[in-house]
Amino acid sequence: MQVKLVGVQRVNFTNNSGEVIKGTKLFCEFKDENVEGLKTNAFFIKPEIKIPECKINDVIELSFNMNGKVEKIDKA
């Protein structure tokens, strides 16, 4: 799915269970046939997934696995 990158947030915290959560949140805009205009969503990216060098407003390609989690990111 091609999306336009509109924000990036680094995540590093400990949840209530004591588990350390690290990764990156990508805030993206994309077309959705059920929404008039563009839809915005945040996607959590685990540290082991390589994020290409990109800037705000760049178009990137997100690939998802069978569980709906981001598996791969490419620069479009």
Rank of each mutant, 00 (worst) to 15 (best):
K50C: 04
G18C: 08
K55Q: 11
V6Q: 13
G23W: 07
V59C: 01
G23V: 04
V8I: 15
I21M: 01
M66G: 09
D58C: 02
N65L: 05
N15C: 00
A42Q: 11
R10Q: 15
V6P: 11
Q9H: 13
K55H: 04
V3G: 04
N57Y: 07
K46Y: 13
K50N: 08
K25V: 13
V70I: 04
V35F: 09
T40M: 15
G23P: 08
N34E: 12
S17V: 10
I51C: 01
K46R: 15
I49L: 09
I49Q: 02
T40S: 15
E53S: 11
E19C: 07
I49C: 05
E71M: 05
V59P: 00
E53W: 03
K46D: 06
K39S: 15
L5M: 08
N16I: 11
D32I: 07
G23S: 04
F43V: 10
V3Y: 04
K75T: 02
M66I: 09
L38K: 13
I60L: 01
T24V: 14
S63E: 11
L26P: 08
V3N: 08
P52M: 00
L62S: 01
E53V: 09
P52V: 00
I45R: 03
K22N: 14
F27Y: 15
E48Y: 14
I56K: 15
R10I: 12
I21R: 01
S17H: 14
M1P: 06
T40F: 12
A42I: 10
K72R: 09
I21P: 02
V20Y: 04
K50H: 10
V11G: 04
E33C: 09
Q2M: 10
L5Y: 08
V35G: 05
K69I: 07
N15L: 02
N65M: 02
L62A: 03
F64P: 01
G7E: 12
E29Y: 12
V35L: 08
F64M: 00
K39Y: 07
K55F: 01
E33W: 09
L38T: 14
K39C: 09
